[in-house]
Lab assay of single mutants.
Amino acid sequence: KFNKELSVAGREIVTLPNLNDPQKKAFIFSLWDDPSQSANLLAEAKKLNDAQAPK
């Protein structure tokens, strides 16, 4: 279960257009550290992506 959630969340995070590479890497490392938090980490990444969207 975690492997699928981890890969789905990881793929989504790397495609978020408004995150820079260090931010993406930080989220990916957090996913590896605790795969059970993949849904929460993906939600946080999406929030940050939205907040950094060009206005």
Results as ranks from 00 to 15, higher is better:
Gln23Gly: 01
Glu5Thr: 09
Leu41Gly: 01
Pro22Leu: 15
Ile28His: 01
Leu16Trp: 03
Ala45Arg: 00
Gln37Trp: 03
Ala39Ser: 10
Leu48Cys: 05
Asn49Ala: 02
Asn3Trp: 14
Leu19Glu: 00
Glu44Pro: 00
Asn49Leu: 00
Ser36Lys: 09
Ala53Met: 06
Thr15Arg: 15
Asn3Phe: 14
Asn18Ala: 06
Lys46Cys: 02
Ser36Pro: 04
Lys24His: 01
Lys1Arg: 12
Asn18Ser: 03
Ser7Lys: 07
Arg11Val: 08
Lys46Asp: 02
Ala9Asp: 03
Asn40Leu: 13
Pro22Cys: 14
Asn49Glu: 02
Asn49Thr: 02
Lys47Ser: 09
Trp32Ser: 05
Leu19Lys: 00
Phe2Cys: 15
Trp32Ala: 07
Phe27Val: 00
Leu41Pro: 01
Ala51Met: 13
Asn18Pro: 00
Ala43Met: 10
Ala26Trp: 14
Thr15Pro: 00
Glu5Tyr: 13
Ala53Phe: 05
Lys1Pro: 12
Asp21Pro: 12
Ala45His: 01
Phe2Arg: 05
Gln23Glu: 03
Pro54Ser: 08
Asp34Phe: 05
Asp50Arg: 06
Leu16Gln: 03
Leu6Cys: 14
Glu5Trp: 12
Ala26Asp: 06
Asp21Arg: 09
Pro22Gly: 14
Leu31Ser: 01
Gln52Cys: 06
Leu42Ala: 02
Gln52Trp: 01
Gln37Pro: 02
Pro35Thr: 04
Asn40Gln: 13
Phe2Leu: 10
Leu41Thr: 07
Gln37Val: 04
Val14Cys: 15
Asp50Asn: 07
Ala43Gln: 10
Ser7Ile: 12
Gly10Phe: 15
Ala9Pro: 03
Pro22Trp: 15
Asn40Pro: 04
Ser36Tyr: 08
Glu44Leu: 10
Gln52Met: 06
Pro17Leu: 06
Leu41Gln: 01
Pro35Trp: 05
Thr15Met: 14
Lys46His: 08
Pro17Tyr: 03
Leu16Glu: 01
Phe29Arg: 12
Leu6His: 05
Asp33Thr: 13
Ser7Thr: 12
Glu44Gln: 12
Lys1Thr: 11
Lys1Asn: 14
Pro54Gly: 08
Asp33Arg: 10
Leu31Gln: 02
Gln23Ser: 03
Asn3Ile: 13
Phe2Pro: 09
Gln37Ser: 07
Leu31Val: 04
Ala9Trp: 12
Gln37Arg: 09
Glu5His: 11
Ala53Asp: 10
Ala39Met: 11
Ser30Val: 06
Lys55Tyr: 12
Phe29His: 10
Gln52Asn: 04
Asp50Thr: 07
Leu42Asn: 02
Leu31His: 01
